[in-house]
Amino acid sequence: ITGDVSAANKDAIRKQMDAAASKGDVETYRKLKAKLKGIR
């Protein structure tokens, strides 16, 4: 179950990262990237 949750989280975070990148929001992008590392 835990694996599914983190996989879903990663997917959601990647989508947020894409949105931040397209807006040029480097700050948010970095925060999300750090979150991704924390999940692993």
Rank of each mutant, 00 (worst) to 15 (best):
I1S: 09
I1E: 09
I1A: 09
T2D: 07
T2Y: 10
T2G: 11
G3D: 10
G3P: 09
G3V: 12
G3K: 09
G3E: 10
D4H: 12
D4Y: 03
D4K: 12
D4G: 09
D4E: 11
D4M: 10
V5D: 08
V5H: 09
V5L: 12
V5R: 11
V5A: 06
S6K: 10
S6H: 11
S6E: 10
S6N: 12
A7E: 09
A7S: 10
A8K: 10
A8L: 10
A8Q: 08
A8N: 11
A8M: 12
A8Y: 05
N9M: 14
K10R: 14
K10E: 14
K10W: 14
K10P: 09
K10G: 07
D11H: 08
D11P: 04
D11T: 08
A12K: 07
A12F: 11
A12N: 08
A12I: 09
A12G: 05
I13T: 02
I13M: 03
I13V: 04
R14T: 05
R14H: 07
R14Y: 07
K15S: 05
Q16E: 08
Q16K: 06
Q16V: 03
M17G: 01
M17Q: 01
M17K: 02
D18V: 14
D18Q: 14
D18A: 15
A19Q: 07
A19P: 01
A19H: 05
A20V: 01
A20E: 00
A20S: 02
A20M: 02
A21M: 14
A21V: 06
A21G: 03
S22T: 08
S22Q: 13
K23V: 11
G24P: 00
D25G: 00
D25E: 01
D25H: 00
D25V: 00
D25R: 00
V26I: 13
V26G: 04
E27T: 03
E27H: 03
E27A: 05
E27V: 04
T28A: 13
T28C: 15
T28P: 00
T28R: 09
T28K: 06
T28V: 04
T28Q: 12
Y29R: 06
Y29W: 06
Y29S: 07
Y29V: 13
Y29N: 12
R30W: 06
R30Y: 07
R30F: 06
R30D: 15
R30M: 13
R30K: 09
K31R: 07
K31Q: 05
L32P: 00
L32V: 01
L32G: 03
L32H: 01
K33L: 15
K33A: 10
K33T: 02
K33C: 15
K33R: 07
A34S: 05
A34T: 05
A34Y: 01
A34M: 06
A34F: 00
K35A: 08
K35T: 04
K35Y: 10
K35I: 15
K35Q: 11
K35D: 02
K35S: 07
L36E: 01
L36C: 12
L36T: 02
L36P: 00
L36D: 01
K37F: 01
K37Y: 03
K37S: 11
G38I: 06
G38N: 10
G38R: 11
G38L: 06
G38K: 14
I39W: 06
I39S: 06
I39F: 08
I39A: 07
R40K: 11
